[in-house]
Amino acid sequence: MRFEGTVYLEGGSTTRDAVSLGQGEESSCADVGRDAVGTYFADDPGQVALWSLGGFDPAHVVAVREP
């Protein structure tokens, strides 16, 4: 995910309370085949709702809710 210019990596799950933070950009991954580029952000990336977690600065930690 990318939010306000910062790229975030997955680091686990939590049951903490969350507060809506806004929309972030979803990365894509092309890691198979001869021309694999790995993770990247498309020119027009998908959007995903992001959440802040109590006790954590959103400059360092954001959350995504699993469906």
Rank of each mutant, 00 (worst) to 15 (best):
D43E: 15
D57H: 09
D57Q: 08
T15D: 13
T39N: 09
P67C: 00
L53T: 03
L21V: 08
E66N: 00
E10M: 02
D43C: 05
A36E: 14
A49S: 14
S13P: 01
G22T: 03
A63S: 05
G55R: 04
V64E: 12
S27G: 12
G54H: 03
V61A: 12
Q23F: 11
P45Y: 03
G12N: 07
A18L: 15
M1Y: 09
V64I: 13
P67S: 09
G38W: 09
P58W: 07
Q23K: 15
T39F: 07
T15E: 12
G55L: 04
V64Q: 12
A63D: 02
A63Q: 04
Y40A: 06
Q23G: 03
Q23S: 12
L50R: 10
T6N: 08
A42D: 15
R16C: 13
L21H: 07
G22I: 03
A42R: 11
F41T: 09
F56Q: 13
G38I: 08
G5N: 14
L50W: 08
D17E: 13
E66M: 00
A59V: 01
L21F: 08
E25N: 02
D17Y: 09
V32L: 11
S13F: 07
D31W: 06
C29D: 11
L21D: 04
G12A: 05
G46Y: 03
S13V: 06
H60N: 15
Y8E: 09
G38A: 10
L21M: 10
S13G: 11
F3D: 01
G5E: 13
R16W: 07
A59H: 00
R65L: 09
V19A: 15
R2Y: 00
G22P: 04
A36V: 11
Y40K: 10
W51I: 13
G22A: 02
D57M: 05
S52R: 15
F3K: 05
S28I: 00
S28P: 04
V62E: 06
L21T: 06
S20T: 00
G22L: 01
R65Y: 04
E10H: 07
C29A: 14
R16Y: 10
L9E: 15
M1V: 11
G54T: 07
A42H: 10
D44A: 10
V61I: 15
V19Q: 14
A36T: 12
Y8G: 08
Q47A: 08
V32S: 10
G24F: 03
F3A: 02
S28V: 01
G11K: 13
A18K: 08
P45C: 02
T6S: 04
